[in-house]
């Protein structure tokens, strides 16, 4: 690095370029830690996945037969992958809107200034403290075919017991219920934070002009909360696409592949069947899906977001 006195001696244009260069350099230096982190844990694996997706791998997992786009061709016409895509889309539709509506409802409740609100805030966000594996195991017992408390409850009030995890249609619902329950804590906490950031004066003015609760909710709360809602939607959407743990524990992708969500199907291809090629192709496909959905969301969803 040259000292400032030296630079002062040069012509002004050179000073500008010099400074530009220095800005660049310091910018890069500031970014370097994240660049290195991302390269090691994201960019390199992404590149390697892309590479593997064009190959067949042998039993050591080494790419040794180049097949071009065959893996992609295969997954796009394979029925089981179609089922995976369908299941994943359904799963996203089941979990994301429901989860956010429930968390928003709970956050609105917990945001009221009543006695014991702190207690409920803790309870509502407590699912954040439970690991995916632990909560999935608890739900496994709730859904248990012969001893599950849910079926006992239903039969005790005279209903017919349901094959929660054993019927293809119900299995996806069961996994979705579990996921919603697990995600509520996180969404709730973020939304509650957002609610508490809304300026009190807005509500005071609204009250003075005699606005009803729902009018306030529609005209003040939701618009002011929209950046937070947007964030929560984006994050839960990506999370829903990447669901793995609960599927692994509750259903292992079954019955009849009805809960074989894309990430689980990738796992099975790669680590049970050792077909790293097709697994990589599926990963790239998932990456593109999430990318497109996120871009669309930013393009159309963000228009409705009101930044203060």
């Amino acid at each position: 690095m040259k000292s400032a006195t030296e630079i002062q001696g040069k012509s002004s244009t050179r000073i500008v370029t010099k400074w530009k260069f220095m800005y660049w350099r310091s910018a890069i230096l500031y970014l370097l830690p994240s660049i290195i982190l991302f390269s090691v844990f994201l960019f390199y694996p992404l590149g390697k996945t892309l590479y593997l997706s064009f190959f067949l791998t042998d039993q050591q997992g080494i790419a040794n037969v180049f097949v071009g786009f065959e893996n992609y061709q295969y997954i796009l016409q394979a029925e089981s992958f179609h089922k995976s895509i369908k299941a994943t889309i359904l799963f996203v539709l089941y979990t994301v809107p429901t989860g956010i509506v429930i968390s928003l409802f709970l956050a609105l409740l917990a945001n009221e200034k009543v006695k014991g609100a702190g207690f409920f805030r803790t309870i509502y966000s407590s699912t954040m403290g439970v690991s995916v594996a632990a909560s999935a195991v608890v739900w496994l017992f709730i859904f248990h075919p012969s001893m599950g408390i849910l079926n006992q409850l239903i039969t005790s009030i005279g209903g017919t017991s349901i094959d929660w995890l054993l019927h293809p249609d119900w299995a996806l619902v069961s996994v979705a219920v579990t996921t919603i329950w697990m995600n509520i804590g996180f969404s709730f906490l973020i939304l509650l934070g957002g609610l508490q950031n809304i300026d009190e004066h807005l509500y005071e003015s609204a009250k003075i002009s005699g606005a009803s609760y729902f009018y306030q909710l529609r005209r003040i709360t939701i618009p002011m909360l929209s950046p937070t809602l947007f964030f929560v939607t984006t994050v839960t959407l990506i999370n829903a696409f990447q669901t793995f743990g609960q599927v692994d524990i509750l259903t292992q992708g079954g019955p009849s592949e009805s809960t074989n969500l894309i990430v689980y199907s990738i796992y099975r291809e790669a680590f049970v069947n050792y077909q790293f090629g097709t697994a990589s192709a599926q990963s790239i496909f998932l990456f593109l899906c999430i990318l497109i959905v996120t871009i669309l969301q930013f393009k159309f969803g963000e228009r409705k977001v009101h930044y203060q």
Partner: peptide, 9 residues
């Protein structure tokens, strides 16, 4: 009776 794919079940 279909009791799934889990031995314990």
């Amino acid at each position: 009776g279909n009791f799934g794919s889990n031995w314990d079940d």
